[in-house]
């Protein structure tokens, strides 16, 4: 009887330990926004556009270009300045990892610029020139993003 009880106890302990380890292992890593609350009751005359999720950030396919990055959530860091560049959307969840030196394809969209960019005005519009890469700032529903463009 005693040996059955001890066996049961050890099995429970093992199960508990395994569960704990698994739980912890799952916890770490990035925190990505998967949706936002809808902020309008009335969605306009094209109400049934098939857009079930009225999340501005995920409305377009090409916004998630950086979605595989680990985003460091530092909840206390609400400062306006991150490194070189001001962000329209400096929210911690949207802080981008530095753009690496790998080739940046024209048409890619990023949330923030690499270091050492210069503002250049072409035909009245501001561009950011960062080394050999040109970015066109664009204002969207929730933030300002940058599209890689050919030199204007």
């Amino acid at each position: 009887m005693k040996s059955i009880f001890l066996a049961f106890l050890s099995v429970s302990l093992i199960v508990f330990i395994v569960a704990e380890v698994n739980a912890r292992g799952r916890g770490g890593g990035g925190h990505h926004a998967r949706s936002h609350a809808r902020s309008n009751v009335n969605s306009g005359h094209h109400g049934n556009r098939g857009q079930v999720n009225r999340n501005n950030v995920n409305r377009h396919g090409n916004v998630n270009i950086n979605s595989n990055r680990d985003v460091n959530v530092n909840v206390n860091n609400r400062g306006y300045h991150h490194g070189c560049c001001y962000h329209d959307n400096y929210h911690p969840l949207a802080v981008a990892a530095a753009v690496t030196a790998t080739a940046i394809v024209v048409g890619s969209m990023v949330n923030s610029l690499p270091p050492s960019c210069q503002t250049v005005i072409v035909s009245g519009f501001a561009y950011q020139q960062c080394g050999n890469t040109w970015y066109q700032p664009q204002m969207s529903g929730s933030s300002t993003t940058y599209i890689v463009v050919n030199a204007p």
């Binding site: 309008n40 009335n42 969605s43 005359h45 969207s140 529903g141």
Partner: peptide, 27 residues
């Protein structure tokens, strides 16, 4: 304007419901 911003630019006009209630756009 609200329709254009939504459809063309993905921008929700803040407070847009205040302009859609009382019109056919209120779904």
């Amino acid at each position: 304007l609200a329709d254009m911003l939504e459809e063309k630019h993905g921008i929700d006009l803040p407070g847009v419901d205040l302009f859609r209630w009382g019109t056919p756009e209120a779904d």
